[in-house]
Design a protein around this nucleic acid. Structure first.
Lengths: 244, 244
DNA sequence: AGCGCCGTAATTGTATACAAAGTTAAGTCA
DNA sequence: TGACTTAACTTTGTATACAATTACGGCGCT
């Protein structure tokens, strides 16, 4: 009623196309046809092409020499590298937050988020995934802003948009796998340690913890790949990973 | 005759607009008028708006809530942060190159570049700026590719495009200032040490050196700011820095 | 004089039109 | 049969047209 902010055609194109690509709708290495896509999304080619440019920038699409775009086909190495990049940038953000001091309001909000996450994993037999996933995302978002630098914030956000490098990438649809419950508890323990390190102005430790925390995603990636047949449909974007 | 690759209208828009903005042609915080700009660049609004989107992404422009774009006004802190980001990403690239091993062909090319740079600074009385600047840029480009990861390469390139964070940002127009000659010799010494660290698989040292190397740019920034009246016209983009 | 309101002019966001390339397929020749 | 040529057809890149907002300036009101 109040938050009725206008949704532009460009936004519609960006969100629509992104989710279509993530869902594995398009064959990698075949060109995206602009006209039919525009029709399908109910918009004209102009905002669609804008959105395609953005997705090229995010690394989800790539330009074809002769014109147009195609979906990128990812290798395991690509994803590992993207996670490494995220770890490096989140690590820098954590270190700067420690060295320069946290923005007080954001620090306070971090504490609340951490409390919620603690509660979500408190019962090993009954982990609250529906709470954990969004609050985990929120924690990582706050981490990017904690140093109070808009430049750093932007770069953290960008790194999290790298295909399959998001902190939430391998969290979806894993309620049923026992191994992942352990992974979540470990992850939350790292969240706590990371926050404490920043609070205690231990920049180097904070950086190392943030990097190691990103490594959890790598472990989850490897596990998911080995279990691909069972999980392919539940992990968004897994369809984009080359099967060779 | 052979390298006659077609230059698209979009490329013309991107290069033209970027250089116009860098030159301080537009007042920060006033909207860029699309029609007159398109006329001035000799293109239509369509490729111009594409280019504006790209420059927003690079951080040179920002969107206005009510529509259109304006030039960003940078503070010292913004630039310091951008340099910090570049240091972190180049540091990661250097570490990965050390840990994983360099691509042999690129390592060989690095050696050649370093030899040229050594020669350029060998005579303290007569430093060859016209050679140093492009070869320094080349070294940093090679550094991004040394780990053999396209993902890392992309991110290094992006970090170097952050406004005033480029390795070459404060090199132009400093032939005449004695203090900077020393800076160049120190920088080249760091290049050597960095390369040796990578070669000897000393990942942590390589990372630290790359970060410290980026700090040179910070020193140069501070010097340039304090000497602004003399240098403003010679350092591209300095006009975009807020004078408060 | 200062502040708010309204109408006009300018500007953006989006759709469509059009020309230049690129792609595909049929047909011809070796 | 297979490769090359050519012609019709798609598809993209760019320009232009149009409608919805937005910015601006004058007018009236307090």
């Amino acid at each position: 009623m109040q938050n009725q902010q206008k949704i532009s055609q460009y936004d519609k194109a960006l969100m629509g196309l992104r989710s279509l690509v993530w869902s594995g709708e398009f064959e990698a290495s075949t060109r995206l046809p602009e006209v039919s896509l525009a029709q399908r999304l109910g918009i004209s080619r102009t905002p669609l092409r804008q959105a395609m440019g953005q997705l090229v920038d995010e690394g989800l699409l790539e330009r074809i020499e002769t014109g147009g775009c195609r979906v990128v086909s990812f290798t395991m190495d690509n994803i590992i590298d993207a996670i490494e990049v995220r770890g490096a940038i989140e690590g820098m953000a954590a270190r700067l937050a420690a060295e320069r001091g946290m923005v007080p309001e954001l620090a306070q909000e971090c504490r609340k988020v951490l409390d919620v996450l603690d509660a979500a994993v408190s019962d090993p037999r009954n982990i609250d995934f529906d709470t954990y996933v969004p609050y985990n995302a929120r924690f990582h978002e706050l981490l990017g802003r904690l140093a109070g630098s808009t430049v750093v914030e932007r770069e953290v956000e960008r790194a999290c948009r790298l295909p399959l490098a998001s902190p939430s990438a391998f969290l979806q649809g894993q309620e049923l796998i026992p191994d992942f419950r352990v992974s979540l508890r470990i992850g939350q323990d790292q969240h706590r340690s990371l926050f404490n390190a920043i609070q205690d102005r231990e920049g180097s430790r904070a950086e190392a913890l943030a990097r190691e925390h990103a490594r959890l995603a790598r472990r989850n990636l490897k596990f998911v790949i080995s279990e691909r047949p069972n999980l392919a449909s539940r992990v968004p974007g897994l369809a984009l990973v080359a099967t060779t």
